[in-house]
Write a protein that binds this DNA or RNA. Structure first.
Lengths: 254, 254
DNA sequence: TTGCTCCTCACGTCACGTGAGGTGGC
DNA sequence: TTGCTCCTCACGTCACGTGAGGTGGC
């Protein structure tokens, strides 16, 4: 018996399948364009007509997309000849990628909260002042001269993790009275350099400074000592610049 | 005394600043193009020349980018007149977005591992068979007729969470002997419908079925009963289709 | 002189969103 | 007849990566 109320090839419009699968018609057309899904047949007016098998294939794709699988990978998953046992492996690989992503985002989130709380992102000079006070190098009511603020900002910018990390690394030096008393006269001698300072004076000062400073070997992104003179050129005299070149040679011998 | 070895306006090339800030020259040019950073001065050959202040501004931007802040938001943060106290608030807001993202990714990752372990993403018929066996509705060595596999796949596709969720919702029904004994004769009566079945028979069957089925009100994406006949048209006769329409009217009264 | 850096377009990425402009179906 | 759906381009998104083709600096 032939049933006239039921079409022999029951078909849905693009909007109907899309709604059933929980996507937009545009998304479905995109999947056709990328050969993720075969184009279905068309009716007499050029409309796409979908059957139950098309819906099943689409939902499969939609679920893999919701799991974060990129389209090219889905293509390789569903093409015939694809190893059926590889799907669980690919899912596990995606899970591992997410593990790393979650670790990364968690670290970033924690750092965001820390920076919001301490406000150290934007006030290198203030951060430096607090550290100096904590080490008794600056009186509680003393402050850094205005002229030193750009230098503090530059120091902050040159270290990958900024001023707090600089102070962290310098903490040992600052907390050690012996190192502090050794550095103080060296700083004075550096400030006393002039254009006319003899090479011998500069060379021995560089040697003494290099002996006190911690090695930069383990820095993730060591400061490029070659560009330092270019940045500081208008604040240093010729003797001080020669000192920087000497120090660079000693700290980073090629 | 004029020092000839030190330039009055010490400047770095784009490659030098970029390396100091840990980005590529292209990234820096992109920041200029988006007005995130002002274009620096050029030398006689058209090369950009950067000073210490440019480096400091760049590093500020690079750090905010590393924290996940989008460029337009950074622009609003660093333009003059920007409320200084708003930066911590924006950082906290970013942290909250990351909280949600982390929750989302964690759920997806767990689901990936679950699907990889149970392999229920791809074998709706097998999943159905296992559930039927667990409820004693199918012998341990019996299997689903091949003809029912497409129906299982369709059922799986029509539920947003797939076959396991379908079985979960139907679990109460299957586990309840009273419901099972009520459904069995109803299924037989449905299968017995023909093109010539009178409306009265169909109407009362629809009423009895609707009384037994759980309400679809709380489904996140209720199955569109209007399209069901189009999907099943070639598997059902006219009487069964009239039943579907009746049932639809009872379960979802507009 | 060679190799490196710099310059400015301008297309590509990823998975669609969003009109633009036109036509078929109830 | 009106409103809804469908059709095919084709540009926009986001933050750059990557040549293409040409020139300056050590």
């Amino acid at each position: 018996v032939d049933t006239t109320s039921s079409d022999d090839a029951p078909r849905l419009s693009i909007g109907e399948v899309a709604r059933l699968a929980g996507v937009t018609p545009r998304t479905l057309r995109h999947y056709h364009a990328t050969c993720l899904l075969a184009e279905p047949s068309r009716d007499s007016s050029g409309y796409r007509r979908y059957g139950a098998a098309d819906l099943i294939a689409l939902v499969r794709v939609v679920r893999l997309r919701a799991l974060g699988m990129p389209i090219p990978q889905i293509v390789s998953c569903i093409q015939e000849g694809a190893d059926e046992t590889s799907l669980p492996m690919q899912l596990r690989a995606l899970a591992e990628e997410l593990d790393h992503e979650i670790v990364r985002l968690t670290a970033t989130r924690d750092r965001l909260r820390e920076l919001a709380a301490t406000q150290t992102l934007d006030r290198p000079a203030e951060t430096l002042v607090q550290a100096l006070r904590a080490h008794g190098l600056l009186g509680d009511h003393d402050t850094l001269p205005e002229a030193e603020h750009p230098a503090a900002a530059l120091l902050d910018a040159l270290h990958p993790q900024g001023m707090p990390a600089v102070l962290d690394q310098a903490g040992g030096l600052l907390a050690d009275p012996a190192a502090r008393s050794a550095l103080a006269p060296l700083l004075q001698r550096f400030q006393g350099l002039t254009d006319a300072s003899p090479d011998a004076v500069i060379g021995s000062l560089a040697g003494e400074v290099a002996a006190v400073l911690p090695r930069p070997e383990h820095a993730s992104r060591p400061v490029d000592l070659a560009v330092m003179p270019k940045l500081l050129g208008d604040r240093l005299n010729a003797g001080q610049l020669r000192f920087m070149r000497q120090l660079r040679g000693l700290l980073d011998p090629r």
